[in-house]
Write a protein that binds this DNA or RNA. Sequence first.
DNA 1: CATGAATGAGGCTTCATTCAT
DNA 2: CATGAATGAAGCCTCATTCAT
Lengths: 226, 226, 226, 226
Amino acid sequence: MQDYQWLDELLEKQMPNMTAKKREIVKAALCLFSEKGYAATSTKEIAAMAGVSEGAIFKHFSSKRELMLSLIDVIIEEIMLTLFYTGLPELLEKEYENYEEFLTALARNRLSIITKGISIYKILIQEIPFHPEIREKLQKKVAQVPMAELFSHLSIRGLELQRPVGEVVITLATCFCGFVQTRYLIVPEFFNRMSPEEREKDMVEFIRFLVKGLELAEPSSVGGSK
Amino acid sequence: MQDYQWLDELLEKQMPNMTAKKREIVKAALCLFSEKGYAATSTKEIAAMAGVSEGAIFKHFSSKRELMLSLIDVIIEEIMLTLFYTGLPELLEKEYENYEEFLTALARNRLSIITKGISIYKILIQEIPFHPEIREKLQKKVAQVPMAELFSHLSIRGLELQRPVGEVVITLATCFCGFVQTRYLIVPEFFNRMSPEEREKDMVEFIRFLVKGLELAEPSSVGGSK
Amino acid sequence: MQDYQWLDELLEKQMPNMTAKKREIVKAALCLFSEKGYAATSTKEIAAMAGVSEGAIFKHFSSKRELMLSLIDVIIEEIMLTLFYTGLPELLEKEYENYEEFLTALARNRLSIITKGISIYKILIQEIPFHPEIREKLQKKVAQVPMAELFSHLSIRGLELQRPVGEVVITLATCFCGFVQTRYLIVPEFFNRMSPEEREKDMVEFIRFLVKGLELAEPSSVGGSK
Amino acid sequence: MQDYQWLDELLEKQMPNMTAKKREIVKAALCLFSEKGYAATSTKEIAAMAGVSEGAIFKHFSSKRELMLSLIDVIIEEIMLTLFYTGLPELLEKEYENYEEFLTALARNRLSIITKGISIYKILIQEIPFHPEIREKLQKKVAQVPMAELFSHLSIRGLELQRPVGEVVITLATCFCGFVQTRYLIVPEFFNRMSPEEREKDMVEFIRFLVKGLELAEPSSVGGSK
DNA sequence: CATGAATGAGGCTTCATTCAT
DNA sequence: CATGAATGAAGCCTCATTCAT
């Protein structure tokens, strides 16, 4: 099961009083769903990879579907935590010359979070089209994030977005999705062949594009005139 | 099978000497794969929706997998034709004030093509992570498109890209993927609720973002004032 | 379809007014049944090997079973002709010193007939256990052979069997079956590796054994005293 | 499932730690394969006769083919044990007047073993032409039997074979095969109608033939310690 | 509490056979 | 008359799930 140590930590963090066996099942499921998709993965395979009996899965989860949805819960929770909150206070507290600088920091931070635990994003993206429950859960969770509030700290310090926060968030989400999609799902072979430097460059270029696109450069030039 | 008339036309165009029944099978498969995914669709369902016996499917396709790959071939072919070639000559011939104007036209054109035959993009995006053959096929096809050449006409007329064509294409592809992904796969319910006007606005905003991001506005305007 | 020319001749002889296509079907069926067995051979394969459409088979034979039974008819007929009658008059007319000499000639003659058209014996032996009709047909046909009469010519000339004709025939049949069975069905690889000389030796030994076993040597020696 | 008690014992002996259900499957398979042949027997039938679900078969055997090969393993093992070893020591230890007497005892002994568990020989003989693996297995096993050694005890006691052991064994095998083939596969109806006495007589005659044929009588008489 | 044998519905595929063309 | 598309029953096998041990 490769280097899924980070997964162990994730599960320990989110489900601390989970038995070792249950954790193994979740890990195996995550690993296999990510590689082959939910529908194409059998409970037998999961049991085999987890090193438990087939029956054990159903002791812990009432059905394969429920196992997947539990998994998705963990994933969404993790995404919420890391993507929307982790490191944000620090990011927001820091002083920035202008919005561009801030957004660059933000985008870089978020993208590196994503690329770290890529398998969990893969599952989410892959399964979301087929399971309305997942979509509902995700929307509910995302809706709870006080987007505007997160960004409000900044305006106090004189950094203004040129567009409504909602729009910016949607655009960012769209682009992040596209980034993961293309790099990790559509042509993974292509991006896997890249050296770390090339990847860094690829990411930097994309961030530059994002920042430019969000019209954040302009105000800075305006701000520059002050 | 809903309003899949455009599909009929597509199939007639691409596989003109296909029997009616074979076409029905392909249509049903496309419809179901798009909704439930390849792995979760049974050949029985396909047969039922196509109004044929299950055996008939295997008279035309040696396996379920082959049916899917045939479908993908059609889809890729169609995408190549519409996305890379359809309407491009006209777009490229026209006179543009600056690259921004051109790219706006281009993006709008491409996006509307995509949103028209959305199911075929859905299938592609949904199945691509699970089938290396599809990725190979797609890469091979895309690699054949003379990207630079397509854009070369423009530089003659004084419209210069600020970035290497390759980068621009990748960025555009990334964003288009993200656009489809978010609007049609991740939260389709959200975007389905939109009025045509709202959708138009959504698209316009996104195009503006794209164009800005590709640094095409600034230089041209700057260059213009120089 | 290998060197099945003798089959062509056989069919021409037995079913002279058979269309070319029908003959091809019979040949293909014979070939495949002999190799894989009736149950494991599909009509599709037969059609493919015969170079005709699947439907064509059913124009000529009402069912796969009937095709097989027709085949068996041909085979039984052929066996009757070659095994019980072909060359027998000559064999019987000749002068022999003693029964041993005659039986040696007979056994050699019969065995070489068998090994020539081995595929048809293979089919018969392979399918006989599973189809009562075949057994009935065979018994009926064999019962019609005037065994005693065939041998009666000999006693006139002073050659006496030490055992009832029926017993001798059964024993011979048993041994011939065993010979074909072991050499061609049970360990064909072993006997295929043999050189023609080795095969000849193998057969000679077996004939010697047969003749000895049928107690034909002894009386002759007794007869010798006459 | 008729009188297959001996099969129960056989399986208990050879696969002692086999679950009851697995044994039922094997028994049913053996029974059906023997009657209808491997290719014409469906897993559903086997399941029905064994009184288990179809799925159960595949919990125990990875495929229908593997079930058959397992069966064949058991059969070959059994044949090796009973045909080559069971009772041989006793047979060999006893005192015999001459080789004829010994061989008569041997043949009678072997033939009665065969006719007892006839179904397993039927399967072997029926399936052998279609499955090279079976042939290989059988040859490997048979090659391991120390034929010459088995007979060597005898020469010490002054009983000499007139022919090389190998030849004798092949001839015996050939005849035994032919005996089973004709009596149980080719015209079972005929031999089934026989009274026990008639069968006994049939067997005795055949043994006499065998012994004569192997030239064992003569030398001994010549050897005429008489 | 864990196991893995058991289930039976359902998966994909092949079959012999029919029938419109 | 030949074709091969069409059929639907049946084939082998896998599935998620249950339950006795």
